[in-house]
Amino acid sequence: MSGRKKTLLKVIILGDSGVGKTSLMQQFVNSKFSHQYKATIGADFLTKEITVDGGKQVTLQIWDTAGQERFQSLGVAFYRGADCCVLCYDVTNEKSLNNLASWKDEFLIQSNVANPADFPFIIIGNKIDVDESKKIASLQKKLNNVTSNQLGGLNYPVFETSARDAINVEPAFEVVAKMALQQEELNEAGNDVSDDYNDAINIHLESESSSCMC
């Protein structure tokens, strides 16, 4: 189960309903935008091959999830083995900004990642194409407040994007890919310990622990 030939990076997009998770994914993967995206129920993913710096080919597997709270408890089925998590908010919706921390916490509880303290998260504020007057007042200050107080003072990369006008979407996902790759390499390292961790129980470790010192 270890030793995948291609590098597959699993990315989860989370955030409140209507912040534009599906639009971001569609814009990045298919370079298109529509007002007609259905509300997401459950979760599904799209994949895209990209080259990160250093010329390494990776496949991003991007999971789009439902925003409604009642579906949150089902996340445990999808979050497993994630390499990076994108926390989304809507720059016109203050509540979605304030909910970032709870999305992060919920993700950590359900995904059971090996390194919760330094698992890579990235923050995306979507819909910057809208009229300035509709945006959250003193956004930067509130955002700083959220990252420093609620998100544990960690310096997660922050991007402001427009999925509609394709602003900053590509750069954001390039960073996602880089962070996910780092996480994946971290997992691969150390005698596959983290890999076993992520792949859950495997009591017959005798054969595994000696293999793969590549």
Binding site: D196, A200, L205, E206, S209
Partner: peptide, 24 residues
């Protein structure tokens, strides 16, 4: 009990890793 048969170091690591993944 499986990990008891293992050498000290890898044994303790695999024990804790399998136990923690069980808990997931």
């Amino acid at each position: 009990s499986a990990s008891e048969y293992q050498s000290n170091d890898s044994g303790s690591i695999s024990l804790s890793s399998s136990l923690s993944s069980l808990s997931s």
